[in-house]
Design a protein around this nucleic acid. Structure first.
Lengths: 195, 195
DNA sequence: CGTCTATTTGAATGTACTCAAAAGCGGTGG
DNA sequence: CCACCGCTTTTGAGTACATTCAAATAGACG
């Protein structure tokens, strides 16, 4: 069944049959209901996670208890609390389901073992991380240099699906603006078209 | 001589003597004067770069021709145009020297070969990238959730050295504010202490 | 249906910005 | 050594965009 994840991996490395079998044996399927947590901040238990179906979000709470969404992950994406996964320390972030989702998890210890037993995965995750790094650089750049309206425009352009699936409140959080501001942007932006 | 880079690497992987010798043979020492470019946007030539001494900055130009600093790299840090390095396409960013600097470069092709011939480096750069990823996530979070003054406070806290070595103009750019605003922050922040 | 949360709208506020000009600093050449 | 030039930093005034607080409306879920 896990066609999707194998295709995802095949984009960057080629597994022989044994490696593939071993990899599949490491995966833990899991379903998540809307609003259900995969990871909670402060919790020691962590996974590398691949989304087969549905949509997850990652967020953290600031000093005032405000939520800030850092990542959305839809089908064919990887998501995890990278900090927790690397350091073994308690997570800094929460990950929960935006909608009913089907996941494939790799438990932290199994993840480390996988990297040792099939070193090709070192390469695979390095490439994944490089892309994530570049994407984050671009996001930092855009957050700093673009007005909110333009950031919103680009967000919709890049994630046409998400616009419909995720509450505006959370998109506003991802963009770093208040829900009120996003609401105004959306309506003013539409109007501005006629002279 | 290149003690520093070997110690840097030894933090995550252990090289045997041959591997070490090969690695050293790949390094190209280079000195850079103040304001001299290592990489220019649009240029196809790219390196993975380790800073032995001095300080580099990475930045890009937006549509209006404004500079935006994305990274400072001092001694014992790695810096590169990751986008160019991954994709082989022309760089999106500029990298130049803030002060007289001594670098160790790995040319792009040599870098790919290194990863193949000494796969331990896949691991090394994966770990490096994981840390960079987390740092970028934190930066995104802070840019979105903290007022400029607090961002400045934390920047100084984390990079006490840079405060002295880099023009305020560039720090302002890194923080995503205008030089005027940074100047005001610095002076108001100091005053606010007495009732 | 009723409750709870999300979204919209309004009014007042504030933070950071733009534009403009003065002051400071460093380097260069007469 | 001093005078000048260019660039950075500071300071001031007016402005704009996004925020906060508050309240009304709309939607979703049990």
């Amino acid at each position: 069944m896990p066609e999707l994840i194998l295709k995802n991996i095949a984009r960057h490395i080629a597994l022989d049959p044994e490696e593939e079998a071993y990899f599949l044996s490491v995966l833990q399927p899991r379903k998540l209901r809307r609003r259900q947590y995969l990871v909670q901040a402060g919790e020691p238990c962590r996974y590398e996670c691949f989304v087969e179906k549905g949509c997850l979000r990652q967020y953290f709470l600031d000093d005032q208890g405000q939520e800030h969404v850092t990542v959305f992950a839809v089908e064919d994406w990887w998501i995890s609390d990278m900090y927790g996964l690397i350091t073994g320390k308690p997570s800094l972030t929460y990950v929960d389901a935006v909608e009913e989702s089907e996941l494939l998890l790799i438990e932290q210890a199994a993840f480390e073992t996988l990297l040792v037993r099939v070193p090709k995965f070192e390469r695979f995750f390095r490439i994944l991380l490089q892309r994530a790094y570049v994407a984050n650089q671009v996001r930092i750049i855009e957050n700093l240099s673009l007005p909110a309206e333009e950031r919103y425009r680009r967000f919709v352009e890049r994630h046409p699906q998400l616009e419909q699936r995720v509450p505006q409140r959370q998109i506003a959080s991802y963009l770093g603006i208040t829900p009120e501001s996003l609401s105004r942007l959306r309506h003013q932006g539409a109007k501005g078209k006629r002279p």
